[in-house]
């Protein structure tokens, strides 16, 4: 999802818009929209239920299959209640390198997320507020970077990592993801909405530029910082393509790379659906947690800001 190597079919700026929309309360209905008969309402609810089933069912299958025996999973793929219930798949998974992949993913994700939030904010602030020669040129360059489709950079990035001698190291996994143009863009947009008067007061008091940024402006940009945190987390946690070209040492496999290797004979003969479902489930849980927690945190933060006026 990073603009350096999107693993996903959706561009980062689209994701940012979507993410922002998700946090907005929906507008109340108008007379025109509330009109309509009972039959129409029923049809809408019916369509909604059908779509909800289509969207939620795969996750239910994932959960239930992870608790099945292999025979049960293959024999009764439609059955949603495991019979018998077993945690064998999770036990088998613990015997693989899964714990190592998980640790690697956590290390990479934390580094990338902290780095992106900090460096993108710094650059975004400079581009929004500081006056320096070449600012326009820098911003234009960042916009140009946004237009480069990430997938075409796979081979190029390998070439540089190899040339620098850091192929097959943690820095190779982390450094190229450490900043992203879309994030800089998001932060710049947000900083421009903060009134300049606040900074002026601090500047008169003699505060330095970094101090003003760090203790005054950045705290005010909490909604944007949270959006960026969520996007960076998702981006690095779900990243696959970059990790494929940055290392081939199994000790440096992250979750995506490691779990993907489970399908290609990593588990020995035969399909081991409960194990792959369990792996998928475990790698989805942190995403779901961040998704829910930060969204709640954000909503509270937004309300608190509104009360202060």
């Amino acid at each position: 999802m990073s603009d350096l190597a999107p693993t996903d079919s959706v561009a980062p700026e689209a994701r940012a818009r979507a993410e922002a929309e998700l946090m907005r309360p929906m507008r109340a209905g108008t007379a025109a929209e509330r009109s309509g008969g009972r039959g129409r309402k029923l049809a809408v609810y019916l369509a909604l239920v059908v779509f909800a089933v289509i969207y939620i069912y795969p996750f239910v299958v994932q959960l239930s299959t992870s608790l099945k025996t292999n025979g049960d999973a293959v024999g009764r793929p439609l059955g949603l209640v495991p019979n018998p219930v077993t945690t064998e798949a999770f036990r088998r998974l613990a015997e693989t390198d899964f714990p190592l992949w998980f640790t690697n993913s956590v290390v990479v994700t934390v580094c990338v997320t902290v780095g992106r939030v900090f460096f993108n904010s710094l650059a975004g602030y400079a581009l929004a507020r500081l006056r320096f020669r070449g600012r326009e040129a820098v911003f234009t360059a960042i916009l140009a970077v946004l237009a480069v489709p990430g997938i075409v950079l796979l081979i190029p990035k390998f070439l540089v990592l190899n040339y620098l001698g850091i192929y097959n190291t943690y820095p190779a996994l982390i450094l190229p993801l450490l900043v992203d143009a879309a994030g800089v863009f998001i932060m710049k947009q947000f900083f421009e909405t903060i009134p300049a008067s606040v900074e002026e007061a601090a500047r008169i008091d003699g505060a330095g530029t970094f101090r003003i940024f760090w203790s005054i402006v950045l705290p005010m940009a909490r909604p944007a910082v949270i959006t960026l945190t969520i996007l960076s987390f998702q981006g690095s946690w779900n990243e696959l393509a970059h990790f494929i070209i940055a290392a081939d040492d199994p000790r440096l496999y992250t979750l995506t790379r490691g779990v993907a290797s489970l399908t290609s004979g990593g588990l020995g003969s035969g399909n081991q659906f409960p194990i792959t479902m369990a792996a998928g489930l475990l790698m989805t849980i942190p995403t779901a947690l961040v998704f829910v927690l930060f969204q709640r945190y954000f909503t509270q933060g937004a309300n608190a800001g509104a009360e202060k006026g």
Binding site: N238, L262, T263, A279
Partner: peptide, 10 residues
Amino acid sequence: VVSSVAISLV
């Protein structure tokens, strides 16, 4: 927001 790997496996 879910990893394409996890979804592919399902």
